[in-house]
Every structure is written in C-alpha cells, then in structure tokens.
Design a protein around this nucleic acid. Structure first.
Length: 406
RNA sequence: GGAGAGAUUCCCGAGUGGUCAAAGGGGGCAGACUGUAAAUCUGUUGGCUAAGCCUUCGAAGGUUCAAAUCCUUCUCUCUCCA
C-alpha cells in the first residue's frame, strides 16, 4: 500500500471541519512519514483548567484529537496549570484575576473526566506544565523570553489593541504565548490543535521549535463553536453548553441555539460528514420545520456526551416541558419549615438571587402557581396550610419548584 | 524620579453640591409573538423584616442642613519625559 495514498486519505478525513492547516503540505509529509515508519504523530492540545466545567465548544478540537487517535496517532494533552494561572489573554480586553495552583489542580481533575468522554484515554499522554515549569530557572526563562521580540508579540491583535486603547497589559500576559510555545518544544509536538483564535499561540510554538532546531509542528485550527446567543461559546458569557450539564439541560440548551448555528454544531460537535450537511440542507429546502432538525441534533449531542439512550429520554423531557409546557417529573423540592412570604421563599429556595429580584419577577408576571399567575410578592406561605402534595411554583418557562411542608 | 489624565452601578459611559439608586447604550432577566430559535415590541435590571428603610459612584477622613459631585491623604491605572 502506497504510504502517500494512505496519508492523503488520513488528511482528507482530518481536515474536515478545520478552518485552517498551517502548512497543509507539511502535515501531509508528516502523515506520510508516519505511515512509512509506523511512528505515530504526536498531536498536542492544551487545556487551561480555569473553571470547573468543560463546554462542548472545548470538545471540538477534542473530537479532532479523537480522530487522530483512531488513525493510530498519539494524543498529548497538556494541562496548562501555569498558563491557567495567567489566563489566556486571547480575545480578552482585560487581565484575568490570577488563579491559585491548587484551584487549577482541582479543576483539572474535573476536566479530565469530561474530556475522556470523547478522547481515548488509552492512546493519550496527559502532561502537566508544572513538569517543566515547576523547576524552570530564571536563566532559562530569560533565554526563552529572548526568543521573541516585543514587536512580534505586539503583532498579536489582542495585545496590540489593548496597548493602543491604553489598557494595562501585564508582563506575565506577554509570556502566555511563549509558554504555550515552549510546551510544544517539551513534548515534541508534530501537530497542535486549537481554535482559530489560537493561531498566534500555535504558530509561536512552530517558530520556537524551529529556533531550537526541532521539526516544526503544524497548526490545525478549528472554527469556534457559536454559543446559544451566536457569539463565541464561553462560560463567562453564559452562552455555553456544558459537557457535564446533564442530558435534559444539555438538550434544552442545544434547542436554544440559533438555527444558523445548526450546521456548525453538526459538523464540529457530531463530526458530521458532508453528506449529513447536504441532507439537512435538502430537508430544509423542502420546507421542513427547522425545529425537527434541531431536535435530532440535540438528541445526537446528548448521546455523544451522556451515552446511548440518553438522547431519546432528554427529548421526551424537553417536549413535555417546552412543547406542552408541563412540569418536569423531577421538580426540585423545597422544604418550608416556617411561615414566610413569597419573595423571601423564592430567594431562600434559589429561584431568585435576592428577595428584591423575586419581587421584580412577580411584578413582571413571571411567577405562577399551577395556572395561576401570582401577583403579590408578599403572598404568605404557611407550611401548615400547604396541600399534601405541596405547592408548585414556576418562574419563567423553565424553573420549577415544589414547596412542601418541612 | 518629573509632568499630566483618570477610577461611576454586570460592561461601556453621562453626570461638577440638592430634583441621583444615578441619563444613554450593551448585556441579563421577564412578558407578548413564535417553531424552541431568530427578529420585533414591552417591561425590568443595588439590598431589606418593603408603600418605609438601608447601602452604593477606587479607599479613608473632612467641609456642608445636604456630596458621585468640594477639600485632604492614600491606593491603583494610563500617557509623555528620564
């Protein structure tokens, strides 16, 4: 079998859903060499455990990594315990508050569980930056920093813009791309995956490797997955869909994405083929309700992260809740042990962040008990007068609570 | 080290003594509409033991009947010069 042909076939699969491969030719060569020598490519992907949850946007490059693994290549996951404490400046207009290493460690454990729902743990190396940064000397750091120039770093839009706007740019932030680049040197990456916003950082790694006389890695950049509001998916924007959100919540949030984003989700999250996209397009052209397509999409996504059968159950729950507007089966219970008024109860039960907000929601007509809209925030609730089955309170479309005697 | 500018509610940003819980925009939340979404329209967006009270305009003091607004000190940021 011709190595070149095999490599080409691999590349065709791998470049699906990619925004850019820099440079594509070099990747093809690497693949070819790998086929010839039987040495798997080392495919690097860094994660900064800045929060405690991974969203499905993070999983886009993870899915790609899995494809590499399925072709026999080696996944090298870098836990960015040092870079996380800086905070990736990319796309930021302000510094991030520093994160303690301990916090990062905790986050990383949660991340790993979620990531390995997609990535094959048996063909993966999990590396911590602290392996090499924990003992990096100042002399080494200086040498490293000297590999880059200010002008080079200011070419990064995020730095330049903030600098031009007169915003503060911390010196440590300038080091972010440098550290990420050095990771590639340390793990001997052949390919680095990332979102399109990672282009600068990944290319920095390429350059540093070349500087050190190593074979330069290729960059494989994936489009950024839009969140439910159409902007880039991000936890801090609150538009994310958590891998760990639970099937019902995940389903509901996928249903909330914009119609225009469906293609991206199908291709990037479900790794759909061009045929899948064509089929969806023709169904829409035939006048089918986009909601039906979205239901299938949501079902598929839930299955991907929660296992067989979870999609159908989540769909049933969603239809009951949103199409028929019935209360879900598992309405959280709140035990009420003393007489109180509605707004305080809503706050204590977590339906509102403050009693003032609760009062506002009531005034806005968002609060129902059964089919009755509640209009008095001072409405008395006495546990002794509650019906046996409790009192069900609904706030907006989705938040339910059953108040029971407690 | 010197000179100047600045810090306002989730974000941007107006506000130079009372009419300021603070314009306007963004974002969020809610209501209507709908296909769930988008778009559009409307309302809302500090807290509380709620028609009253309390706390907020970088921090701490001060002046005043009254301070986001005036004074003092401090902290932080930016720009230019060195």
């Amino acid at each position: 079998m011709d190595a070149k042909k095999v490599a080409e076939r691999q590349l065709r699969l791998l470049e699906r859903g990619c925004d850019e491969i820099v440079p594509r030719e070099a990747l093809l060569e690497k693949l070819e060499r790998s086929v010839e020598t039987g040495r798997p490519l080392r495919v690097k992907l860094g994660i900064d455990p800045t929060g405690n949850a991974v969203h499905i946007g993070h999983m886009v490059p993870m899915g790609k990594l899995r494809q590499f693994q399925d072709l026999g290549h080696m996944a090298v996951l870098i836990i960015g315990d040092y870079t996380a404490s800086i905070g990736d400046p990319t796309g930021r207009n302000a510094e991030r508050p520093p994160l303690s290493l301990e916090r990062v460690r905790l986050n990383a454990e949660r991340y790993a569980e979620q990531i390995f729902r997609v990535v094959d743990g048996r063909k993966a190396e999990l590396r911590w930056q602290s392996e090499w940064y924990g003992s990096l000397s100042l002399a080494e750091l200086l040498g490293l920093a000297g590999s880059f120039s200010l002008a080079q770093l200011l070419a990064h839009e995020t730095f330049r813009k903030r600098y031009d706007d007169g915003a503060r740019v911390g010196l440590h932030e300038l080091l972010y791309p440098v550290l990420q680049a050095y990771d590639s040197v340390m793990v001997g990456a052949d390919v680095e995956l990332g979102g399109t916003d990672q282009k600068f950082n990944v290319l920095a790694g390429r350059e540093l490797q070349r500087d050190r006389g190593l074979d330069a890695q290729c960059a494989m950049l994936m489009p950024l997955l839009p969140g439910i509001d159409g902007r880039k998916m991000s936890k801090s924007l609150g538009n994310d869909i958590g891998v760990d959100a639970g099937p019902d919540e995940q389903f509901a949030r996928v249903m909330a994405i914009r119609d225009e984003a469906m293609d991206a989700y199908r291709e990037l999250v479900l790794l759909g083929t061009p045929e899948d996209s064509a089929e969806a397009a023709s169904r829409l052209a035939a006048g089918e309700n986009p909601m039906r397509l979205k239901l299938e999409l949501a079902s598929g996504i839930v299955e991907r992260f929660n296992g067989q059968g979870s999609g159908r159950a989540a769909r049933a729950a969603w239809e009951r809740r949103f199409s028929r507007r019935e209360a879900p089966d598992d309405v959280p219970l709140y035990a009420c042990d003393r007489a109180t008024d509605l707004r305080s109860l809503m706050r204590d039960a977590g339906l509102a962040s403050s009693s003032s907000e609760a009062a506002r929601l009531v005034a806005e007509g968002a609060v129902y008990s059964g089919d009755t809209r509640l209009s008095d925030p001072g409405f008395r609730i006495d546990p002794d007068e509650l019906p046996e089955e409790g009192l069900t309170i609904r706030v907006g479309r989705r938040r339910y609570l059953r108040v029971v005697r407690g």
